[in-house]
Amino acid sequence: MATLKDVAKLACVDVSTASRALNDSPCVHPDTKARVYEAVKKLSYHPNLLAKGLRQGKRHTIGVLVPTINLSVFAEISQGIEMEARRLGYETVICNTMDDPAAEKECLNRLRSSFQDGLLIAPTGSNSKLIRDIKESGISVVQIVRRQDDHISSVVSDYRESGFKGAKYLVGRGCRHIGLIDGSMKIIPYRERYDGYKEAMAELGYEENFVESPVVRGDYFKDGYDGTNILLDGNPDLDGILAAADMHGIGAIRALKDRGIPFPEKIKIMSLSGHSIGGMLETTMTSMEMPSVAMGKKSVQILIDEMDGPAEAVPSKQHVMFHFSLVERETT
Rank of each mutant, 00 (worst) to 15 (best):
K42P: 00
N127Q: 12
Y90P: 00
D117N: 09
G118H: 04
K41V: 03
G118L: 04
I62D: 01
V66A: 08
E106Y: 05
D100I: 14
Q79G: 02
Q79W: 00
G118Y: 06
A85N: 05
G63D: 00
T68K: 00
G138M: 09
F74Y: 15
L49H: 01
C95G: 11
R132N: 14
D133Q: 14
Y90R: 08
L71F: 03
Q56L: 15
V73A: 12
K41H: 15
N96L: 01
L54T: 07
I131R: 03
R110E: 11
A51K: 14
L71N: 13
V66T: 12
A85P: 01
K41Y: 14
V141R: 03
V64D: 00
S113R: 10
G53C: 05
G57H: 13
Q79I: 02
R55F: 09
I77V: 13
F74N: 04
K42C: 01
L108G: 07
V93H: 03
A75W: 04
N70Y: 11
E91F: 12
G138Q: 05
A102L: 13
P47V: 11
S113H: 03
L65N: 09
K58T: 15
V73H: 06
V40P: 01
D133V: 01
L111K: 12
L119N: 01
P67R: 00
V73C: 12
T92N: 04
N127F: 10
K105T: 03
S44E: 05
L71A: 14
T68P: 07
M98S: 09
Q116F: 05
Q56F: 13
Y45E: 08
N127T: 12
Y45S: 10
P123A: 06
V40L: 10
R132T: 14
I134P: 02
T61D: 03
R55L: 15
H46E: 15
A102S: 11
A51T: 08
K135T: 12
P123V: 04
L49Q: 05
K41R: 15
A122E: 00
A75L: 06
I69A: 04
K129T: 13
L71C: 06
G80K: 02
L130P: 00
Q79F: 06
I134D: 13
Q116E: 06
L43F: 08
H46Q: 13
P123L: 02
R110I: 14
G80Q: 06
G53Q: 09
C107M: 03
S137H: 04
G125D: 06
L65Y: 03
L50R: 14
A85W: 07
I69H: 06
N127E: 12
T92V: 15
S128M: 05
N109G: 10
A102T: 10
R59T: 15
S128G: 08
I139M: 15
Q56Y: 09
M83Q: 13
I81F: 07
Y45V: 05
L43I: 08
I131N: 07
R110T: 15
T92E: 01
